[in-house]
């Protein structure tokens, strides 16, 4: 599975520690339409567990998580 996902919006959350990544992404996802995808880039290792927890609770879907070096790229689809 190496398909590329096209993001409708990119959020640069690099260097931001807890709780900022989820606070920002929860705001940012409301700025795209339902069905659209945002790419959130975080350098917070805690985000690896936090983002899935947030997505599950808020009813959104993480399509893909990519790690390159310190950067973690989350592709999140707005479902509700």
């Amino acid at each position: 599975m190496n398909e590329t996902i096209k993001a409708d919006k990119v959020m640069d959350l690099k260097g931001l520690p807890c709780p900022m990544p989820v606070v920002k992404v929860s705001k940012g996802i409301k700025e795209v339409a339902v069905g659209q995808v945002i790419e959130a880039i975080s350098t917070d290792p805690g985000a690896l567990t936090d983002f899935p927890a947030w997505a599950k609770t808020s009813g959104n879907q993480i399509l893909k998580t990519e790690q390159s070096g310190k950067e973690i790229h989350f592709f999140i689809k707005r479902l509700s």
């Binding site: 807890c18 709780p19 606070v23 929860s26 808020s58």
Partner: peptide, 11 residues
């Protein structure tokens, strides 16, 4: 406040 702001993110 970390819990408070995080809670808002969690809906």
């Amino acid at each position: 406040f970390v819990i408070a702001t995080g809670s808002v993110a969690m809906g």
